[in-house]
């Protein structure tokens, strides 16, 4: 009897341990869990070094500052899950800030401008998707062309920064939803979180979403299983285009201006956030919530560097590069073990 009672909890403990370790070494959950641990660790480090680091306003500000990046990362997650990549997101974001600023400047109403931007960037995504699907052009090159096009169009619109004075945009930019005290968020955060929610539902509860995962796991298999592979492959670029456009709109809420040179290299941040968030770059594994964690990790590193004061901002890039390396090697190890 006594042996039984003592061994039962040990067994349960061992089982739990086994569960935990198998979750950490699974290619599906492992990287996301590592990201979560990492995020907590960074917060712990920040909290131990700086007063007021782990506080409501700091955490909420992470979301406020990175709302646009969350939206970009959501779109990028769809693309990378299929095994593709979208290099155009930064340029498309810049383009939509330029379109917004210049159209608002010439007196268009915000209620027309915003939907127009979303339609235009989705169409651009559609063209990229068709190029990839019909002409079998590598996603890398097709989205590169889109990147050139979008940046070029920015310059064509104007090479100077255009500020936005439209009352709707200004009020959207300045309205804060307060939680009492110094804790508040902007409308952008709400929109970004809505996007995340919709993306989550689409990825996990719709046939489109499951086909996205299927393509990443094996395009040929998906086709033989009778899934709409071709349509879905085009659609992910439309989604990414739409998200880039929306991210651009959120970015104008944040900066209240349009500028051609804005968000240079943001595509790298988005890709890094997705990879650090546990999505496999070859496709098939990953979660949109992981990408949000990835964005938060990037944002927290930036916050720490700001708090530190003496550390220069370029350390961010080096940290991101280092994290990318760690996660890419981690993915390699986790997927190799399964083969």
């Amino acid at each position: 009897m006594s042996i039984d009672t003592s061994s039962a909890p040990v067994d349960a403990g061992r089982r739990l341990l086994g569960r935990v370790s198998s979750a950490f070494t699974s290619p599906k959950y492992g990287p996301v869990l590592v990201t979560l641990v990492l995020l907590i660790a960074i917060f712990a480090i920040g909290g131990s070094r700086y007063r007021g680091f782990v506080s409501g306003p700091v955490i909420l500000n992470l979301f406020v500052d990175n709302a646009y990046l969350i939206v970009l990362a959501v779109g990028m997650t769809f693309v990378i899950l299929t095994g593709g990549i979208d290099l155009s997101v930064g340029a498309v974001l810049a383009l939509s800030t330029m379109i917004a600023a210049s159209l608002l400047q010439s007196g268009w109403s915000a209620s027309v401008v915003i939907p127009l931007i979303l339609v235009l960037t989705s169409v651009l995504g559609l063209l990229v998707g068709l190029m990839i699907h019909i002409f079998k052009i590598q996603p890398f090159i097709a989205t590169l062309a889109a990147m050139f096009l979008a940046r070029g169009l920015c310059y064509v619109i104007s090479k100077d920064s255009i500020s936005i004075t439209d009352p709707v945009f200004v009020s959207l930019a300045q309205t804060r939803i307060s939680f009492g005290g110094r804790m508040s968020i902007t409308a952008s955060v709400v929109i970004a979180l809505l996007v995340v929610l919709v993306a989550f539902l689409v990825l996990h509860y719709s046939r489109l979403g499951r086909t996205v995962y299927a393509i990443g796991g094996g395009e040929q298999s998906g086709m033989l299983m009778g899934l709409p592979v071709a349509r879905t492959k085009v659609l992910v670029y439309v989604i990414s285009g739409f998200c880039s456009g929306l991210a651009g709109v959120l970015f104008t809420f944040y900066t209240l201006s349009g500028y051609s040179l804005t968000a240079v290299g943001t595509e790298l941040d988005a890709i890094a956030a997705v990879v650090i968030g546990g999505t496999l770059l070859t496709g098939g594994y990953g979660f949109v919530l992981g990408s949000v964690l990835g964005v938060l990790v990037l944002g927290t590193i930036q916050t720490i560097i700001t708090f530190e004061g003496t550390l220069s901002s370029w350390w961010t890039r080096i940290f991101i590069g280092g994290l990318l390396l760690v996660f890419i090697v981690l993915q390699k190890v986790l997927t190799a073990r399964r083969r």
Binding site: S221, G222, M225, G226
Partner: peptide, 18 residues
Amino acid sequence: VNLLGNLSVAENIMLGRE
């Protein structure tokens, strides 16, 4: 085996007609 190793067993059985 033309199934998808990255998805669950249940899903592989039911994919496309869930």
